[in-house]
Design a protein around this nucleic acid. Structure first.
Length: 476
RNA sequence: GUCCCCAUCGUCUAGAGGCCCAGGACUCCACCCUUUCACGGUGGCUACGAGGGUUCGAAUCCCUCUGGGGACGCCA
């Protein structure tokens, strides 16, 4: 039977790339197996959850094109999909647990417990709830929390899809609070009740959750619900080996979008971080869907590597058609640029695609084609359009004026012949011409630049440069 | 302190007893291509944490140690 999987982020900030990888693996599994990908918002941390964060999550998921089959804005057979709107459900389930003797009301106050904990810690001991209310028969009219009656002996375990068998002694657990005094469930409880009521059959999540799994399994059991499969993915660390942070990496999806990364590249990089398929490094979205599996997920924490990320991004950029890249880069062009047709932009893109990493770079590199005059790099002008440049530039200009058709091959042939006849090498004229045409010392090939620019503008730019050089000659 | 997990080049990883004196990729370096910058190509540096077993044979299995990470909340 196809699995029902879910991604259940907490809206406490941007969508973290670690979270994206979790979402991705679940999504890939669902898409590969014809399963259902559920999006649920775990907003029970009232202090930190914000509506803005919820919006960011949706936007990021949409940009990455990780579509959800069930959840806000999609089908909602198990609505609502926000935990704060499911409070009655949690209360019901908690009551059921109490009735069945799997949970109990605890009247100890947070203050009492905190004091005891502080005391224990001061003595170098580790505090564990002593079970004060576990067997009490009176039910005073006081505020209470609900605690799970946890087995004290034996072990709780599961066959983790990526980690293998994990068993944890039950005496390590304590009677955990599952419902707060204010009726809001704790993570472990809300999560399980939702997974049960939403029919989740496979839980794929970060490795930091393995410690939550034993108590959650206990809750599944107490609820009399089938226990889903679990897959715990290793963490992603920063390049310093520590937890991924804003200082060591771009952690939010939005940052990659503004840097001009392609969604498929982000997915590819994240997929390969902690999962492998032989020696393959570059995957299309479709390949990821076809090839993803839990067996080849790594067991070790991975370090984020921006250089490799860029490499993957560049590979995806090169893999796209000029037309597609042009379409994506167009909104990134400076508004004052004059681009007559999409085809023209695609031609320009073709010349910079192997030189750029991001869409932002594409937009930047293509700028000189559509700006009249191009932006000149002063150092380049000084070096190549000075007093001595005028004769060669002039000769080149006059030669090119006669070339027809005006394409890169014909241009190159004509120029090469001319150079030979005059005992010159391309080195003598290439850089001045490059600066004249592009404003920079680094650019796509000279003849492709001319072709894309077209005859008229090529000659105009050459003329302008010649005039500039002549002026420099009279001055100095 | 107790419990859980992990351990191959700097990094991501392949590897599920012989195919491995360890393969791919990123990075770095050299060379080739070349009008510049890229792309591409070729080559190079660099790894099985340590010690014990098991075995004819171990990166692969077992044990110990060491080193990392995580948890022990009315956070998620």
């Amino acid at each position: 039977m196809a699995d029902r999987v879910r991604f259940a982020p907490s809206p406490t900030g941007y969508l973290h790339i670690g979270g994206v990888r979790t979402a991705l693996y679940n999504w890939l599994w669902a898409r590969q197996t014809g399963g259902t990908f559920v999006l649920r918002i775990e907003d029970t941390d009232l202090e930190r959850s914000t509506e803005a964060s919820v919006k960011v999550i949706f936007e990021s998921m949409r940009w990455l094109d990780l579509d959800w089959d069930e959840g806000p804005g999609a089908k909602e057979p198990h609505a609502p999909y926000f935990q704060t709107q499911r409070l009655d459900l949690y209360k019901e389930h908690a009551e059921r647990l109490i009735t069945r003797g799997h949970a109990y009301r605890c009247f100890c106050t947070k203050e009492e417990l905190d004091a005891q904990r502080a005391l224990a810690q001061a003595a170098g001991k580790f505090f564990k709830y002593p079970g004060t209310c576990r067997n009490r028969t009176d039910q005073p009219d006081k505020p209470f929390v609900v605690r799970l009656k946890t087995p004290t002996s034996g072990t709780t375990g599961w066959n983790d899809l990526v980690k293998g068998r994990i068993d944890v002694p039950n005496d390590q657990q304590q009677d955990a609070v599952i419902m707060r005094g204010n009726g809001v469930p704790l993570y472990n409880f809300g999560c399980v009740v939702d997974d049960v009521t939403m029919g989740i059959t496979l839980v794929g999540r970060g490795y930091d959750h393995v410690v939550n799994t034993p108590p959650q399994i206990m809750i599944f059991e107490a609820l009399g619900a089938p226990i889903p499969k679990f897959a715990h993915l290793p963490m992603i660390n920063g390049s310093d080996g520590k937890k991924l942070s804003k200082r060591t990496a771009a952690v939010s999806v939005g940052e990659y979008q503004t840097m001009g990364f392609l969604p498929d590249a982000v997915l590819n990089y994240l997929a390969r971080l902690g999962w492998s398929h032989g020696d393959q490094e570059v995957f299309s979205r479709q390949e990821l869907i076809e090839k993803f599996d839990w067996e080849h997920c790594g067991r070790t924490a991975a370090q984020y590597d921006f250089k490799k990320f860029q490499h993957i991004q560049a590979a995806h950029l090169r893999g796209k058609t000029n037309e597609d890249v042009a379409k994506l880069a167009r909104p990134l062009l400076k508004p004052e640029l004059v681009v007559e047709t999409d085809a023209q932009l695609a031609l320009a893109v073709d010349t910079v695609k192997t030189r750029a990493t991001t869409l932002v770079e594409v937009a930047d590199m293509v700028d000189f084609y559509f700006r009249e005059p191009p932006t000149f790099d002063e150092k380049a002008v000084e070096k190549f359009l000075g007093a001595g440049a005028e004769p060669n530039l002039g000769a080149l200009r006059d030669l090119i004026a006669e070339v027809s058709p005006f394409d890169r091959a014909t241009l190159e042939a004509a120029v090469t012949a001319w150079l030979e006849k005059n005992g010159l090498s391309l080195k003598n004229v290439a850089q001045p011409a490059r600066v004249a045409l592009t404003g920079k010392t680094q650019s796509p090939g000279l003849f492709e630049v001319m072709e894309v620019l077209g005859k008229a503008r090529t000659l105009a730019r050459l003329d302008a440069a010649r005039a500039r050089a002549a002026q420099a000659a009279t001055k100095g």
